[in-house]
């Protein structure tokens, strides 16, 4: 990184301004900034624009005007851009003069796309000075925050490794099923859907297919999506959410019970079996 060049400035003006600002009770950081700006401006005023090549005439005019317009005292001594705008009333964009209050209105839209100033240098500025009063300070609790790297990433990585290890070990010892070639003319008995649909298949034993196969799944899907819009209780404390928690737990348990019974308690013909005496008719 290039080291920052010292900007020449008028130390005397700086000191004087700093004293004046501090006497007014300005915040020390702000006061220092203003004093420094005043010092630089005073120096420039005395020596002309030093060592800045390739400036567009228009821009130099602005800068000169800014230097002239700066009062060298404590007051506005800040945003070069704002000062330049103030000193150039003939500019096409109508700036509102910066009010003392923190809120500043944006210039009214002109409705025209801006075009580059003739002869302007082929650069743009990414950095602008903003008057301290112009900055909206947002005060927020920093809170108790920790770095994602390494704390969270370590935790995630360990969780990942544990699951990976479990899956690999399990897959080494437990063979995934592969039966005979598919035969559309030979229905195995029982025929079961994958486990996550066995709750529905179980329901089919008790209800009309329209209910078990269409209405219930649709209700589940739509009902789940509607949860946040139906439950308007803003609290997330379990103590305040007894109804919601009870309902959800009941439905979840209901689904789990149906799934377990469809998985382990149904045998040939999807009839009831006791897994400990008649065996388990379940494949993953």
């Amino acid at each position: 990184m290039a080291t920052r060049e010292e900007t020449p400035l008028d130390q005397e003006v700086l000191d004087k301004t700093l004293q004046a600002e501090l006497a007014k009770g300005t915040d020390r950081r702000v006061a220092e900034g203003r004093a420094r700006a005043a010092g630089v401006r005073a120096y420039r005023k005395m020596h002309g624009e030093p060592e800045r090549e390739a400036k567009a005439p228009a821009e130099r005019e602005h800068a000169a005007a800014a230097a002239a317009g700066g009062d060298g005292g404590g007051n506005g001594g800040t945003a070069a851009a704002a000062a330049a705008a103030m000193a150039a009333p003939g500019a096409t964009v109508a700036y509102a003069p910066p009010p003392a209050a923190a809120v500043r209105t944006a210039p009214a839209p002109t409705g025209r796309a801006p075009s580059a100033k003739p002869g302007a240098p082929d650069k743009h500025r990414l950095l602008a000075l903003v008057a301290p009063e112009g900055v909206q300070r947002v005060e927020r609790e920093q809170g108790d925050r920790i770095n994602v790297f390494p704390h969270l990433l370590i935790e995630e990585f360990v969780a990942l490794l544990v699951v990976l290890a479990v899956v690999i070990v399990f897959s080494t010892f437990v063979q995934a099923p592969l039966r005979e070639l598919a035969n559309p003319n030979l229905t195995p008995n029982p025929s079961k859907a994958p486990w996550y649909f066995l709750g529905l298949q179980e329901l089919l034993r008790y209800f009309h297919p329209m209910i078990a196969g269409v209405i219930v799944p649709t209700l589940i899907l739509v009902g789940l999506m509607a949860v946040p819009y139906v439950d308007r209780n803003p609290s997330n404390k379990p103590g305040d959410r007894k109804l919601a928690i009870t309902l959800f737990t009941m439905l979840f348990m209901f689904g789990a019970t149906l799934t377990i019974s469809g998985s382990f308690f149904r045998g040939p013909g999807f009839n009831w079996v006791w897994p400990w005496s008649q065996g388990i008719f379940f494949e993953l």
Binding site: P188, Q201, M210
Partner: peptide
Amino acid sequence: SFTGYLLPWDQLSIWAVTVGTNLAGYSP
């Protein structure tokens, strides 16, 4: 998961998929 279940094309997969899709298919 369900679409993958069919791919081995064995007795388990085509019948699980048949039963699974029948669940919805009975209805008019």
